[in-house]
Computed example of a mutant assay.
Amino acid sequence: MSILVIQNDPIVPAGQLSAFLGDHEVLRAWEAPQRLHDLATAPLPGALILLGGRANVYDDEAFPWLEAERELVRRCVRANIRVLGICLGAQLIAATFGGRVTVSDPAGPECGIISLAWGTNDQAGGGGAVPLRMALASTHAVFADHSDAITQLPPGAREWARSQKYTQIFSYGSALGIQFHPEVTRETAIVWASGNEAVDTEQIVAGYDAHEGELASTCKTLADWASGVF
């Protein structure tokens, strides 16, 4: 199955996902925005993955390819094609279907390792939700890096898991939104932390190192889901 991965930011690559995905193409949106617009009428991929980035989900002027991504998400969900949205990608899914994203949410950013609290109704929903939830059962620590947040889910969406502050996993039809970064590598974590004066890079990296195995396992599970393994 061919998987299309859309990279929205040079410093937010596919990372670990590339190691776990089979046949896939990475489209760097800032290099080929016209290609994204052309996808509005092109054959759909076997699955779609939207990566994160520093973009504001509503800032189409600065990031003119975002509307093309939203339209591609609409088409994929209508066709029951799996969509995995990560961080900005999750926010795009939420906003596309009537949810709300708060830019620079006043509850504050999440950076580094955070804990998940699973909901009681998280096994409901489409797109292979039940087997995916079972496969994610051991995921309790994830790596986050964001200040914008999903503050209202689309009508009909289901929240699977939260951190202390925000929705972290939700489903909408065949789409799955993940606020944290399963794809992050140690090298990328260092780049992000080094560019953020509000965090301690050594502390962020130590947290990554302490949970590296769990982070990789979660990433593989999500890559397997996107690939249709279950």
Rank of each mutant, 00 (worst) to 15 (best):
A55R: 03
A94I: 10
Q123A: 13
L88P: 09
Q164V: 03
F63A: 06
Y166A: 06
D148G: 01
A161H: 00
W192Y: 10
R162L: 08
A29M: 14
V26K: 00
F180Y: 13
A137W: 08
R186F: 11
R133V: 13
D23N: 10
I6A: 12
I81Q: 10
F63S: 03
I113K: 13
F180I: 06
E67D: 10
A94P: 09
A193P: 14
K165N: 05
V229G: 02
P13H: 05
D23L: 13
Y166W: 15
N121H: 15
A129M: 14
V83S: 09
S2K: 12
P182N: 07
L50R: 06
M134G: 10
G173Y: 03
A68N: 10
Q168A: 06
A157N: 04
A161Y: 02
G89E: 02
R70T: 01
F63Q: 02
V57Y: 06
I49K: 06
G156V: 03
F180M: 11
I150Q: 05
M1C: 13
P182W: 06
S138C: 05
A90Y: 01
Y172G: 00
T96S: 06
S227Y: 07
S138V: 05
V101H: 08
G89Q: 03
H37R: 10
A79E: 12
N56R: 11
C76P: 07
M134L: 14
N8Q: 11
L88H: 12
P131Y: 02
L84H: 14
A198R: 14
L136W: 01
W160D: 04
A19E: 14
V12G: 01
L66T: 11
G119W: 00
E31C: 06
G156S: 04
W160M: 12
V191F: 07
V184A: 11
M1E: 15
P109A: 15
E183C: 07
G119C: 14
Q16W: 09
R28K: 15
R133W: 01
H181S: 02
F20A: 12
I93T: 05
S138I: 00
A144T: 00
D148S: 10
D148Y: 00
L72R: 09
E67V: 02
D60Q: 09
V77E: 05
P109M: 09
F143N: 12
D105S: 04
A149F: 06
G108I: 03
E212G: 04
W192R: 06
I49Q: 01
A137L: 08
A193W: 12
K165R: 13
F63G: 01
D122N: 12
A40D: 14
N80E: 09
S104F: 10
R100S: 08
S171V: 11
L44C: 13
D209M: 05
D9Y: 04
F230W: 02
I114C: 15
A161P: 00
A47M: 05
P43N: 10
E159G: 15
H181D: 07
R78E: 15
G213A: 14
A226P: 12
G108Q: 09
R82M: 05
M1H: 08
T218Y: 01
I86A: 02
V83L: 07
L27I: 09
G89M: 00
Y208T: 05
F63T: 02
A157C: 04
A68R: 15
V5H: 13
A137T: 14
H211N: 04
Y208K: 08
W65M: 13
G108F: 07
P106N: 02
M134Q: 15
S115G: 07
K165T: 01
A29F: 06
V73G: 00
W118G: 04
